[in-house]
Nucleic acid binder design. Structure first.
Lengths: 202, 202
DNA sequence: CTATTAATCAAACGTACGTTCGTTTAATTA
DNA sequence: TAATTAAACGAACGTACGTTTGATTAATAG
C-alpha cells in the first residue's frame, strides 16, 4: 500500500499534533513513542516524518506554539482595564479562562521543559518570562499608585500565577462550579485576600 | 564477580530510592530505565530486584511514603496555632517549609499519579485528600467564626495549596530571598490578600 | 490523458527495554 | 573453621525503540 484514499496533509498534521499532546500528557514526552503516535493517527511510523523533523522538534514546536498563542491572546484582549484594580481583575479572568480550555498544553508547558534542548528551552523560558511580565507590571503599577499594599513583586507574581494555573489540575467541565464562578472566586481571593480585615499593615 | 566488598543492603536500598527520585524528575517515571537506575547506583540491573518487586512497585512506594511522611509531619507539628488566623499562618509556614526541602518528592507526587496502578493511585489520592482537609477545616472554622470572609471553601483550599506548592518550582537555595522571607511574603498574601483595601464585601 | 507532486507504505538499521535465571563471592553465625 | 545467609553478578528472554530508505499509490496540473 501507499497513499491512501482521501488523505490530506493538513488533516494528518493536525491529527498528529493533537494525538501527540494527549500521549505526552498521559506518558510524558520521553516515554511517548512515535509508534504509539502513528497508531493513534492511523498511520505507519515512517509517515509521521513527513510532518516532523524529529521527536525533539515535535516537542519544541508544541511548546513554542503554545507560548506564542498565549502571549498573542493577552495582547489581543480588548478590555484590559484602566486602573490597577481593573487590570488585575482582567488578568485573573483572562488567565483562568485561557488556561482552563488548554489544559493539555499547560500540563506539557509546565512539565516538559526538562526534555527540551538548550536552544528550545531558552526560547520557551524567554516567552514565559515575557508573559509573566504582564502581571508583574500590573502589580508594580498598583503598588506605585498605592492601590496595592507593598509586597515583593517577584514572589507575588509567581504566587498569583501558580494559584491561577492550579485550576487546570482539578477543573472538570461537569464540575460543581462554572468557569465564571471559579473566576469570581479567584478574583475575590486575589483582590480582597482570604482574610481581608486581618493584620492590616497601614 | 558477585557480592562486592563493603556492600550493605540498607545503604544500597537508600541509594536506589534517591537515584530513582532524581531520574524520575529528570526523565519522567515511564522513561526512566532500570538500567539507568542501576548504573547510577553502581550496580547491575538484576541487583535492583533485591530491593524492589517491580518498576511499578517502586513508584507506588515512593509516592505513598511521601504522602505518609507529609501527613505525619503536620500531625507532629507542635504549634498549630489557636485562632483561625494563627492556624492559617502556621499552615502556610509549615507547608512551604516542608515542601521546599523535598522538591523532588513534590514534583513526583504532582506529576506521576498517571503512572500508578488503580489501587496505588486510589491510595495516594486518599492521602492527598486527607492532607488537604487540614487546610479546608482551618478555612471552614475561620468563616464560621467570622474571622475570614465568605468564600467557596473547596476552591479556596485548592487555590491556596497551589500557590504555596508553586514555590517549589522556582525556589533556589542560593536565591535572593531566604525561606523565612518567602514564607513571610506568602503569609502576607494569604492573610491580607494582594489588595487588602479594595472591594471590601462588608 | 499523461506528468508531476503529495501522501503514504513496508522493511530494515543497530540499540535498548523490564525481567528472570542460576551462579558467585562477602559477611555473619555456630 | 564450617555452615549459612546477604548481596551482588553475567547472560539471556522476547519485545520495542527512533529513524532512514526506496517503492507505491492517490490526487492534481498541463
Amino acid at each position: 500500500m501507499a497513499r491512501t484514499k482521501g488523505s490530506v496533509g493538513a488533516t494528518t498534521q493536525k491529527a498528529i499534533l493533537d494525538a501527540a499532546k494527549t500521549l505526552i500528557v498521559k506518558h510524558g514526552f520521553e516515554a511517548m513513542t512515535l509508534r504509539q503516535l502513528a497508531a493513534e493517527v492511523g498511520v505507519q511510523p515512517a509517515s509521521v516524518y513527513r510532518y516532523i523533523d524529529s521527536k525533539d522538534a515535535l516537542l519544541a514546536a508544541l511548546m513554542s506554539t503554545h507560548m506564542d498563542a498565549l502571549i498573542c491572546a493577552w495582547e489581543a484582549l480588548e478590555d484590559k482595564g484602566e486602573t490597577p484594580d481593573e487590570q488585575l481583575e482582567a488578568f485573573v479572568a483572562f488567565h483562568i479562562r485561557y488556561h482552563v480550555e488548554r489544559r493539555e498544553d499547560v500540563f506539557i508547558a509546565n512539565m516538559e521543559l526538562r526534555s527540551l534542548g538548550e536552544a528550545a528551552r531558552a526560547d520557551v523560558v524567554a516567552k514565559r518570562r515575557a508573559y509573566e511580565l504582564n502581571l508583574w507590571r500590573i502589580l508594580e503599577e498598583g503598588v506605585k499608585t498605592g492601590d496595592f499594599p507593598e509586597t515583593d513583586l517577584e514572589v507575588a507574581t509567581y504566587a498569583i500565577l501558580a494559584m491561577l494555573t492550579g485550576v487546570c489540575f482539578w477543573y472538570r467541565p461537569d464540575g460543581r462550579l462554572s468557569i465564571e464562578q471559579i473566576i469570581a472566586v479567584h478574583q475575590g481571593l486575589v483582590m480582597r485576600g482570604v482574610v481581608s480585615g486581618a493584620l492590616q499593615t497601614a
